[in-house]
């Protein structure tokens, strides 16, 4: 059976094609201003028996392509659990939202947390700050890693933090230290979410944030252990959606047992 998993986000539209339970192809396209058009392009790319949509545009995709739907939360847990069967938690730092999910063997969600409407702690927060520095997010992350220390940034509100950062720059604080402070602020917030859902290791890091080496380093330090970075971090949701579709027809075994571990 051929299933297409689509993650229709506000920034990118991601796709994973499964054939008889194995990933056959994947794609990450820029959503532009018409994510559903981008999705349509992906739907037309290969013949499939079923489409499952997740992400911000899942309901619109359901209407347009007759897709089944699953939330990002459910999809990420399934995807992460497929990539790392021993994993029990996932952290996803995306462009607009951040989520942490605790799951049981096979990707069954046990608890989750997602940021509310504000951008604090998301990829967007770092983007706004990078703009204040006049660099891109990747450069800012490199500076943060190379920094010889950090300056505490206390404000998590994007608007206040931006003026705090500008104030720090005016005071002559080195940019690299501020950059590190900003990454630390995002990670601090993430860690408290992880604690609230009682996340357990091994922890999978996914979403655009997982490509930010400074975040990966700080999250690992924060949990005092190793993080599993998804190889293709932006397609974890699409993979989960496709797996969900395969299971709907009873084709793929989603539940495998593995021993439980201690809290992070």
């Amino acid at each position: 059976m051929r299933v297409l998993g689509l993650d229709v986000g506000s920034r990118t539209v991601d796709a994973v094609w499964l054939e008889d339970g194995a990933a056959a192809e994947s794609a990450v396209l820029d959503a532009g201003f018409a994510p559903q058009e981008v999705a349509a392009e992906l739907v037309a790319r290969r013949p499939v028996d079923r489409v499952v949509a997740t992400g911000y545009g899942r309901h619109a995709a359901a209407e347009r392509f007759g897709a089944d739907v699953i939330t990002e939360i459910g999809a990420y847990a399934l995807g992460a659990s497929r990539l790392f069967p021993e994993a029990r938690s996932i952290l996803d730092i995306g462009g607009q939202d951040t989520k942490v999910i605790l799951f049981a063997a096979g990707g069954k969600v046990a608890d989750f947390e997602m940021n509310d409407k504000c951008a604090a702690g998301t990829g967007r927060f770092l983007e706004v700050m990078a703009r204040a520095f006049g660099v891109d997010v990747g450069e800012m992350a490199e500076e943060a890693i190379a920094a010889d220390g950090s300056v505490a940034v206390s404000s998590m509100c994007t608007v206040f933090a931006e003026s705090e950062v500008i104030g720090l720059l005016h005071r002559g604080e080195p940019r690299a230290r501020i950059a590190r402070g900003l990454h630390e602020a995002v990670v601090r917030r993430t860690l408290s979410s992880l604690h609230r859902v009682r996340a357990r290791p091994p922890l999978v890091f996914a979403g655009g944030g997982a490509r930010n080496a400074a975040l990966v380093e700080l999250v690992a330090a924060g949990i005092g252990g190793h993080v599993l970075v998804a190889p293709d971090p932006q397609t974890v949701g699409a993979l989960g959606a496709a797996l969900y579709g395969a299971a709907l027809r009873g084709a793929a075994p989603l539940h495998q047992q593995a021993p439980e571990k201690e809290d992070i």
Binding site: I70, T71, I73, V109, D111, F112, D116
Partner: peptide, 20 residues
């Protein structure tokens, strides 16, 4: 109504979790 999209996702995920 600004947060309805985000809230719907959280609520749907919660319901998925209750159903599973």
């Amino acid at each position: 109504m600004e947060d309805v999209g985000q809230l719907s996702t959280r609520v749907e995920a919660f319901l998925e979790m209750l159903k599973a």
